[in-house]
């Protein structure tokens, strides 16, 4: 193929038609409470990890919901599971439980790729 010196730039837009939402579905079943997040940012403002890094627990939840899972596991490593976010959340979401279940889900996602997608 002739190399024209340019390629197709990937759209920066979230494409919810094509996004892989298997993790979102899985997490919705494993930790039901996070469905009620109103995105107020209290967790992020109070997050111990977020104090020194760009870690943002509010956004982590959006990444789950939107299927942006590429860097999720690496990101999640910054969380110390201190539970401060959970203490602060006005919706009473079990955030600490969400983070540990998410970690586990990302792990088993690696062991059984693709197949799990259709199950959930």
């Amino acid at each position: 193929m002739i190399d024209f010196g340019y390629g197709i730039t990937r759209s920066n837009r979230l494409n919810l038609d094509e996004a892989d939402l298997s993790l979102a579905r899985k997490m919705a079943r494993r930790e039901k409470s996070f469905a009620t997040c109103i995105g107020c940012g209290t967790c992020t403002a109070g997050c111990t990890a977020g104090h020194f890094t760009a870690y943002n627990p509010r956004k982590i939840q959006l990444m789950i919901l939107n299927g942006q899972t590429e860097n999720l596991k690496e990101d999640l490593k910054k969380c110390m599971l201190c539970g401060r976010c959970q203490m602060l959340c006005p919706r009473g979401i079990s955030l600490r439980s969400l983070w540990s279940k998410l970690y586990r889900a990302l792990d088993d996602g690696r062991k059984t790729p693709a197949v799990t997608r259709d199950i959930f």
């Binding site: 940012g41 977020g50 956004k59």
Partner: peptide, 9 residues
């Protein structure tokens, strides 16, 4: 506080 629109604490 987090400015949630800026995504920045």
């Amino acid at each position: 506080v987090e400015d949630t629109l800026a995504g920045q604490t």
